[in-house]
Amino acid sequence: MIRKAKPEDTKAVAPLIIQAMGELANKFSNTTDADKTLALFEYFFKQKNNQYSYEHTLVYEGDGIVLGSLNAYDGAKLIELRKNFLDYLAIHNNLNDFQPEDETGSGEFYLDTISVNPHAQGKGIGKQLIDAGIEWAKKLSHNKVGLLVEVDNEKALKLYQTKGFQIQNKKEFIGGLYHHMVCKIEIK
């Protein structure tokens, strides 16, 4: 079952966000200390008004256990949603001049992180989360859904293509190279 996330989902969702981000999570936490990185994303997941908040997250729950998550928001709100996060990083993580490139922008509903617990992968949960993200975008009257995928992540690239996403361009983001993919949707 897919549902809106709640603050109580923190312990299950924060590791999923980090899993989706890979090395980017350590760049945000400015450490390779896994506990500190986890604490950062747990903190922000519980907070409102930031891009990693429970407010912007759907979870897939099976037998009362969160097995996957999707974090998404209106790309036009990126700067607003990122502000509290970057302010915190400057104060607490010594990232004073950290200004990541914009991974999204106005005109698209952005799927920021999509992640499935490793023990539950291969069961279609990721596909269901992507579908739920597209439906979420439709409900908010968006006609375009965007995401970034690492250029060498062929498995994810193929999955997104089967869901109607097409590569628009390549984008550098915090030292990595990504495909910016877009799925156009019809609003009825």
Results as ranks from 00 to 15, higher is better:
5 A>Y: 13
7 P>V: 03
8 E>H: 07
9 D>W: 14
10 T>S: 08
11 K>M: 13
11 K>V: 15
13 V>Q: 09
13 V>K: 07
16 L>S: 01
20 A>N: 10
21 M>P: 15
26 N>P: 04
26 N>D: 14
28 F>C: 08
28 F>A: 00
29 S>R: 15
30 N>Q: 01
33 D>L: 06
36 K>L: 11
37 T>N: 02
39 A>L: 01
40 L>A: 04
40 L>Y: 09
41 F>E: 08
41 F>R: 06
44 F>V: 01
44 F>D: 00
44 F>L: 00
46 K>P: 03
46 K>R: 12
48 K>F: 13
48 K>G: 12
49 N>R: 08
49 N>F: 02
51 Q>W: 10
55 E>R: 04
58 L>F: 10
58 L>D: 00
60 Y>F: 08
62 G>H: 14
63 D>F: 12
64 G>F: 00
66 V>N: 05
69 S>G: 07
70 L>S: 14
74 D>F: 00
74 D>K: 01
75 G>Q: 09
75 G>W: 09
76 A>K: 05
76 A>C: 03
78 L>W: 09
79 I>H: 07
82 R>E: 10
83 K>S: 11
84 N>G: 13
84 N>Y: 13
85 F>P: 01
85 F>W: 03
89 L>D: 00
90 A>S: 10
91 I>H: 06
94 N>W: 14
94 N>E: 14
97 D>C: 11
100 P>G: 05
100 P>S: 03
101 E>T: 04
101 E>K: 02
104 T>A: 09
105 G>T: 01
108 E>I: 04
110 Y>M: 06
111 L>I: 12
111 L>F: 08
116 V>Y: 07
116 V>A: 08
118 P>S: 11
118 P>T: 14
119 H>T: 14
119 H>Q: 13
119 H>R: 11
121 Q>S: 15
121 Q>V: 15
122 G>F: 02
123 K>H: 11
124 G>L: 01
124 G>C: 06
125 I>T: 07
125 I>Q: 05
127 K>I: 12
127 K>S: 13
128 Q>Y: 11
130 I>K: 09
131 D>S: 15
137 A>S: 00
140 L>S: 01
146 G>P: 00
148 L>G: 00
149 V>M: 01
149 V>F: 03
153 N>I: 12
154 E>S: 11
157 L>M: 06
157 L>A: 08
157 L>T: 09
162 T>I: 01
165 F>A: 13
166 Q>Y: 09
168 Q>E: 00
170 K>A: 00
171 K>N: 00
172 E>A: 04
174 I>L: 13
176 G>K: 15
177 L>G: 07
180 H>C: 01
180 H>K: 06
182 V>P: 06
182 V>D: 04
185 I>E: 00
188 K>T: 15
188 K>S: 15
188 K>A: 14
